[in-house]
C-alpha cells in the first residue's frame, strides 16, 4: 500500500480508539478489574502504536522527505504538526500519571482525569484532521513514485523495529475488541481493520 493509504488507515484506527477512550471515561464509575485491563490496553495503544509507531514514522520518514521541498508553507505545517506531537506526548504523560492512582482516587481526581482525557482526544482529533487535509495530499503532490515506493518499504522496516513480529496484529485485535465492546451497535466486520 502507498504511504498515504497506510497513514490514512492508521488515522482511522486512531480515531476509533479516541472514541473508545472518550466513551470509556464518560461511563467510568468504579473501575473494575476488566475495565482496568481495557484502560491498560488503551494506554498501550496510544503510547506505542500512536506515539512511538505512527508519530515516529511521520517524524523519521514523512516530515524529512517533505521538508526537502524547502517551502515555507510545508515547513510551517510540519512545525505545527511536530508541536502537536509534543503536546500529545505531554498529555499522555499526564494521563499515565493519573492511571496509576485512578483505582483509589476521589471524585475530584477522577474529574481531572476525565478532563485530561478529553483534552487529549480533542488534540489528536484536530491533529488528524489537519494531517488528512493538508499533509497526506502533499505525499502524492511532492514525492515521486520512486520516493513513495521507498517510503513504503521504510514504513515496513520501521514497523518491524518498533512493533516487532506480530505486534501490529496485536494492536489491530485491540482496536477490534475495544471498538466492539464500547460501541456494540456501531461496529461490524465491515469496519474492522
Amino acid at each position: 500500500m502507498n504511504p498515504k493509504g497506510v497513514l490514512r488507515e492508521e488515522h482511522g484506527r486512531i480515531m476509533k480508539m479516541l472514541a473508545v477512550l472518550q466513551r470509556f471515561f464518560a461511563t467510568l464509575a468504579d473501575l473494575k478489574e476488566v475495565e482496568a485491563q481495557d484502560l491498560g490496553a488503551l494506554m498501550e495503544f496510544f503510547e506505542i502504536y500512536v506515539d512511538r509507531y505512527h508519530h515516529g514514522k511521520e517524524e523519521q520518514l514523512v516530515f524529512p522527505a517533505l521538508s526537502r521541498a524547502q517551502t515555507t508553507k510545508i515547513d510551517s505545517l510540519i512545525s505545527s504538526l511536530i508541536d502537536d506531537h509534543r503536546q500529545a506526548r505531554m498529555g499522555m504523560e499526564l494521563l499515565k500519571f493519573n492511571v496509576v492512582t485512578l483505582p483509589s482516587c476521589g471524585e475530584a481526581d477522577r474529574s481531572e482525569f476525565c478532563e485530561r482525557a478529553e483534552n487529549y482526544v480533542d488534540l489528536l482529533r484536530r491533529h488528524i484532521r489537519k494531517e488528512n487535509s493538508e499533509l497526506l495530499p502533499l505525499i502524492e503532490e511532492r514525492l515521486s513514485e520512486t520516493e513513495r515506493l521507498q517510503m513504503a518499504g521504510q514504513f515496513h522496516d520501521l514497523e518491524k523495529v518498533i512493533l516487532g513480529s506480530g505486534g501490529l496484529e496485536t494492536f489491530l485485535a485491540s482496536v477490534h475488541r475495544l471498538s466492539l465492546k464500547y460501541f456494540p451497535s456501531r461496529y461490524d466486520s465491515i469496519h474492522f481493520t
Binding site: R8, H11, G12, M15, K16, L18, A19, Q22, R125, I128, R129, N132, S133, L136, R186
Partner: peptide, 12 residues
C-alpha cells in the same frame, strides 16, 4: 456522519 469519528480526509 458520526462527528466523533470523522477524520476529514474527504474520501466520501
Amino acid at each position: 456522519i458520526d462527528y466523533s469519528l470523522c477524520m476529514g480526509d474527504q474520501n466520501c
